[in-house]
Design a protein around this nucleic acid. Structure first.
Length: 584
RNA sequence: GCGCCCGUAGCUCAGUCGGAUAGAGCACCAGAUUCCUAAUCUGGGGGUCACAGGUUCGAAUCCUGUCGGGCGCACCA
């Protein structure tokens, strides 16, 4: 339980006390009472809105009610002051001993600090990346990959049982195009002059080596054969090869999925037909004709009767086709089946991470989930906005045709996976993101990756320095935990502990909101707090960590910074970035 | 034309379930810093939270409308 939750319970107990005293009426609603850190440090350690919320039902003025509650709260352990402020806030200050206790807890548990049980073991499915198996991933896929993976890490830390999943779109027309593109490269490998890659086929050079491998394995048996002979095997070969590339690149980003679901297999298993039959049984499938879109008409618009799902009954703007004119399922139909199947596998909470260009698709899938799960399934779609690749402030020009296309792998190889992961989280997922290939490698305050990593490295530098004067035993975790933490009473030292003690709350709120960027923002604040303390030592030598004439205080301060290193490392662990102990 | 997202300091962006005097970094201005634990530090100016209404003890946050930007819009994925 995070400390704010603990004191929230104390506040609610005391509200009950006021009910017992007859000050407040029976049956008063306490659910919306919260206890939070105040926005301004000058307002104390904790603040609660209880009096303002209860004033109306109690028929009292907020400040009068607050006064009554304050009297009660002052009897609680660790609360040294409680004051009424503004329209009826109660601001509380905790004694230093409480914060020292928090630090010693951090030292005891190390990087598992912040682990929470709010998830209660509930299963959650996070589907992310799901890039089409037609080529290597670009930087935009990388953002979705990181967002999904960190979402999963975060939820795991918060006590959920998470499955990472990848949906392979291997059933549509585009994989046939891939097969034809590969067949061309295969012929090329066998000596044919293929000339320019025709329009409509994938020109990427990544298919050249795949074509060579295909030629080595299969010889020239499909070189001049009709497409019907080779389409299926070449397509399978191509899809496998592309998925290998994708999996290797994901691995390079530190990402492993628990499960890959093939759209093709889903169709073959009859799951799509089942899902549509399910909807049909609910009277949600019909033959009909859609209105053309308002405004300018698509060039090739023609009115036609289609098999439609009545998604407009569940919040969508229009009904949606489930069958193409050739009789095969639409992508939407298979996706409905996929989400139905996920829920049947026990996932009532599903998170999908998509690119913004799929934003128009959210309503219909949400509608389908509602219809197919009787409201039991809940889908949260996280849309990831574009990543603009920059170099020294200027956009990187990319063109597939000119061969200057920058893949995700190129970027990982250039700046490292930790930098990629960190930068992808420096904006909220639905905001555009500039990724400056030069800027992210800079060693300066401007570079958030450096700033956070440097805080961790700086702490280890201090510990290494201390090891020259103190024995290894005196620096062990156990020894530091036994240090006289009550010597830490400077406001800046306590401010650092308070920031550290906020971490469990950040984990829980980020997990509940499904917002991974909050972790990175918190790390920036924590690093700033630490660097600030370090800088104080520049002006005032008595605030330095290592003091030759005061071994006890030195140990206490080393315990403090070691605790900070644990919390930074804990946060970096969640975002999948390795904390460094040395910058170079 | 319709839907979704966005609009917060000069720039790039945070802002927790509706909470107090709206924050950070950069840039700018003014000082400090050849001591130390390398990769500066301290302070300052800067805001009609796009605009107009509404809801209420209280709105950047919720609702309606307007303006501006992005994405999407039958049988692609």
């Amino acid at each position: 339980m995070n400390l704010f939750e603990h004191f929230r319970n104390r506040v609610i107990d005391n509200v009950s006390g006021l009910v017992a005293d007859g000050v407040l009426p029976e049956g008063i609603e306490t659910a919306r009472i919260n206890v939070e850190p105040p926005r301004e440090a000058g307002h104390g350690d904790l603040t609660t809105n209880a009096a303002m919320l209860l004033a109306k039902p109690a028929g009292m003025k907020p400040r009068d009610l607050a006064e009554k509650l304050v009297e009660k709260l002052l009897g609680e352990d660790n609360i040294v002051s409680a004051d009424v402020a503004g329209p009826g806030f109660i601001n509380m200050t905790l004694d230093d001993g409480f914060w020292h206790q928090q630090l010693s807890e951090i030292l005891a548990v190390g990087t598992s600090y912040g682990d929470s049980t709010i998830g209660g073991g509930e299963t959650i499915n996070v589907e992310f990346v799901s890039a089409n198996p037609t080529g290597p991933m670009h930087v935009g896929h990388g953002r979705g990959a990181v967002v999904g993976d960190v979402l999963a890490n975060m939820l795991t830390k918060a006590g959920f049982d998470v499955t990472r999943e990848y949906y392979i779109n291997d059933a549509g027309a585009q994989v046939d195009v891939l097969a034809r593109s590969l067949h061309l490269r295969y012929r090329q490998a066998l000596g044919d002059d293929i000339g320019e890659i025709p329009d409509g086929l994938y020109p990427g050079e990544y298919l050249i080596t795949t074509g060579q491998r295909l030629a080595e394995i299969e010889g020239d048996k499909w070189k001049n054969a009709p497409e019907d002979d080779w389409m299926q095997p070449v397509r399978d070969f191509a899809i496998n090869a592309m998925m290998d590339i994708i999996r290797i690149d994901l691995k390079a980003l530190g990402i492993t999925h628990d499960r890959f679901t093939s759209e093709r297999e889903l169709v073959a298993s009859g799951a799509v037909a089942d899902a549509i039959a399910d909807l049909e049984g609910r009277g949600l499938i019909y033959q009909g004709t859609l209105e053309p879109p308002k405004g300018k008409l698509p060039d090739d618009w023609e009115e036609r009767e289609q098999t439609l799902f009545k998604s407009s009954d569940y919040g969508d703007d229009s009904d949606r086709p489930v069958k193409k004119s050739d009789g095969s399922w639409t992508y939407f139909a298979t996706d409905m089946a996929y989400h139905r199947e996920k829920q049947q596998r026990g996932f009532n909470t599903m998170i999908d991470v998509w690119g913004v260009d799929h934003g128009g698709y959210v309503k219909r899938v949400s509608a389908a989930v509602k219809a197919l799960t009787d409201g039991a399934g809940e889908l949260d779609v996280k849309l990831c906005n574009l990543v603009n690749l920059m170099e020294d402030g200027k956009p990187v020009k990319m063109s597939k045709r000119a061969g200057t296309f920058v893949t995700l792998r190129d970027v990982i190889d250039k700046v490292g996976k930790d930098v990629v992961r960190f930068i992808m989280l420096t904006r909220k997922n639905d905001m555009g993101l500039d990724f400056d290939l030069a800027g992210v490698m800079e060693q300066s305050r401007d570079n958030p990756v450096f700033y956070v990593q440097y805080a961790h490295a700086r702490i280890h530098s201090v510990l290494r320095h201390a090891a020259e004067d103190l024995s290894a035993d005196a620096l062990s975790d156990a020894a530091l935990a036994a240090a006289p933490l009550d010597r830490l009473n400077d406001p800046v030292e306590l401010a650092l502990i308070k920031r550290m003690a906020n971490w469990p709350r950040i984990v829980e709120s980020a997990a509940e909101a499904h917002e991974p960027h909050r972790i990175v923002y918190y790390l920036g604040e924590l690093a700033a707090e630490f660097h600030g303390l370090w800088n104080k030592g520049k002006d005032d030598a008595s605030l330095r960590f290592i003091l030759a004439d005061d071994p006890d205080l030195t140990r206490a301060r080393l315990a403090l910074v070691k605790g900070a290193a644990f919390v930074i490392a804990s946060g970096l662990e969640v975002i999948g970035v390795v904390p460094v102990e040395e910058m170079r």
